[in-house]
Amino acid sequence: MQYLLLLYADESAWDSLSPTDQETAVAAYNAYTEALTEAGALLGSNRLQPAGSATQVKVSDGKQQVLDGPYVDSKEQLGGYYLIEAPDLDAALDWAARCPGSHHGTVEVRPVWDMSG
């Protein structure tokens, strides 16, 4: 099965880290990505620009609405994702627990809706 790991964290906490700590954090993510790749579990991954860079679009009754900012304004923001392949939820949760994002934020594990074929 495919699972999307959504990484939520407080962006301001990241900004307040010293450059050395930021480097350490980035290294931890790199190591994690490497481990996923090595296990053949990684399907895709990206880090996102800060939530302040988000723009919302909504079209209703033929009218287009464009708004500044993220869709959900909360204390922790969506900062990146990993798309992984795992045999079952337990295996996916194992990967989520290893993700640095689950140590300084929250990782939401969502099964992917299988549409292929």
């Binding site: 099965m1 079952d88 939820l89 337990d90 099964p111």
Partner: peptide, 14 residues
């Protein structure tokens, strides 16, 4: 079903 919860006895550590 959707989340793929395994119908198994978990590993020893868990």
């Amino acid at each position: 079903r959707q989340a793929g919860v395994p119908f198994q006895v978990p590993e020893r550590k868990e």
